[in-house]
Nucleic acid binder design. Structure first.
Lengths: 337, 337
DNA sequence: ATTCAAAATGAAATCGATTTCAACAACAGA
DNA sequence: TCTGTTGTTGAAATCGATTTCATTTTGAAT
């Protein structure tokens, strides 16, 4: 049913090899022959079969990304960075949404591991460091986002969670808030762990005793933030500020506050993380930590592609990037009008 | 470097054919043989090469989606629906972000056309109806989102833009707003065209004369909405309401209003489309049209997969779904406190 | 006109799996 | 024990391209 290379060859009166040479343009073909072949390609509407091509040439010029949730702007904006860098290097990008489900994560990992792509960017937490090292050792090109492993062939990029979390605490304390809730994402992720660490250090440097009951877990989404806040309210604890692990969870905090009639920031200050596109439209506007998502995507894509091509000129593999606190109305009364 | 099927075969003392049979589990293999093979697979850490498999079996159990922007929740929520339906039918999903760029769109289309996937869902506007029909006729499985073509093998799903646009106008007129701006997305898309049509019909049914100067184009994003509004303000036109082609553009309207000190909804009412996850958190909360994005994704994925498998039991291919107007503070003073 | 290197081309091998087909083994029934 | 059916297995063909290697053409230099 499909037109194959041999059909083009017959129509142009040449061999399949010659058609292939025209297609790939790296060997010498006489101008007249080339023209005949090109005409045949157009007339037959020939589309090379990428599967066969990839099998033979052992590459696909494609990189794959596995993200935990395509609905999270943190990832989609990073994807934009990856996408554009990849495109400029002639790579295509395919995106897989693991939906925070370990089974799907493994299913998509298997898809990528079975050579459908030349390299992969993993933004998912489920694999162990050893497993990732193992993939690299077996010849797969891997790069990581949001975590690091010590391996000289695995580029990693992540933000300095500890640093900006301390800054969040500094800021809140500076505004007079001392009883600060930490609303963690999935407790077992590196991001959550490090943000907790920064939160603890921040408290310590201000001699504020740590109250474990002020740490609650959510799951990085609105519902998780809402439910965690309801739990906290129902425990009748005293607190005056919330540091939410991301803006999405902060939305849930807004909802809980609205339900309970609590005014932001007078009665409760809120700081999120991510600088979601809409955070400046909330009421009040949401203080948050801006992460250079697009740039992170572009950098990790570039390093992965370099690695895939054995371009050894870049030997730095570990990128820790700084994030910036953006103070808005949810944590500063002067800005909340 | 990689372990191949023949390596497993040698290790297990059988032929490659037998290993393949164990792998795919559809032919009979003695239990003892099966165990030997399974042990060899585990011991060698064998991963089948999907590219070779796909070439031979002429399928990949994968469907591809091309969206104009992965950053738009309209698409990501639909992707969730596609993803879950596909997963339940043992299909994987790869997502391509064409970034509203015709070249990328064609590049990704070519990727999908070259048999990397078994079927594709297109949510991009750049192809003509004839081109799409042509793909289907050539044996490619295609489904469409947000547009329709008349072809008995191409499932299509879209919302009744005319209907809900008329409802938006009814609602605004009912609230006393008669000078209604229509902020269109890309003018050339079907969605934009039909929404304009609904807007015009809505006006007509209320005997409100159409003022062409109240129609502005944006590009479905925040910046587009903002810039269009600034243009309108600068023209010193009189208008009291804005119907924005999506919530993202409505955000831009909010920004423009804030800059110009215009109160929503007292001085200007706003209605968007999409029911973006955050629209109910805006200040004031945004009136919008809820589209059943997840369900639309699930339905189109199911129909595409049926089509791919020639399951003729479902002969309905065209799905027009209804959307629901959600009235909130941005267009109703009573709700805007 | 002859020679010879360089350019152009085709036949066949190859990528790594699946699948067909034929051969062989196992086992039930006579 | 023999026959026939069913169940297992392997050799070889196949998917559709690229690439190697050998061969033929070309064209410049003599």
């Amino acid at each position: 049913m499909d037109i194959k290379i041999i059909d083009v060859a017959v129509k142009a009166g040449v061999s399949a090899a010659t058609v292939s040479r025209v297609l790939n343009g790296n060997a010498s073909v006489k101008t007249r022959t080339r023209e005949k072949v090109e005409r045949a390609i157009v007339e037959l509407g020939y589309h090379p079969n990428a599967v066969a091509k990839n099998l033979r040439s052992q590459k696909s010029m494609t990189i794959g990304i596995i993200v935990p949730d395509v609905n999270a702007s943190y990832y989609t904006e990073m994807i934009k960075g990856i996408e554009n860098m990849a495109y400029s290097r002639k790579y295509k990008v395919i995106i897989c949404d693991a939906e925070n489900d370990r089974d799907k994560e493994l299913a998509y990992l298997n898809l990528l591991l079975s050579r459908t792509v030349d390299g992969m960017i993993l933004a998912t937490p489920s694999l162990t460091d050893d497993e990732i090292s193992g993939f690299s050792d077996k010849g797969y090109s891997v790069a990581l986002v949001g975590r690091r492993i010590e391996h000289d062939k695995v580029p990693c990029i992540f933000t300095d969670n500890v640093k900006f979390s301390k800054e969040v605490v500094y800021h809140l304390v500076g505004q007079g808030y001392r009883d600060i809730v930490f609303l963690s994402g999935y407790a077992e992720t590196v991001d959550s762990y490090e943000r907790l660490e920064g939160y603890l250090k921040g408290l310590k440097e201000h001699q504020i005793p740590f109250r474990p009951e002020l740490v609650e877990n959510g799951n990085f989404n609105e519902t998780g933030g809402y439910e965690a806040m309801i739990r906290l309210f129902d425990k009748k604890l005293t607190f005056t500020a919330v540091y939410a692990a991301n803006d999405e969870m902060a939305l849930g905090v807004y909802r809980a506050c609205r339900e309970r009639g609590i005014r932001i920031p007078e009665q409760l200050a809120i700081v999120g993380v991510d600088n979601n596109r809409v955070s400046k439209y909330l009421n009040p506007t949401l203080s948050t930590v801006n992460q250079p998502k697009y740039a992170m995507g572009a950098v990790i894509a570039e390093k992965l592609i370099d690695q895939m091509n054995d371009d050894e000129f870049s030997d730095v593999k570990i990128f820790k990037v700084d994030s910036e606190l953006i103070v808005r109305g949810s944590s500063d009364c002067r800005l909340s009008g």
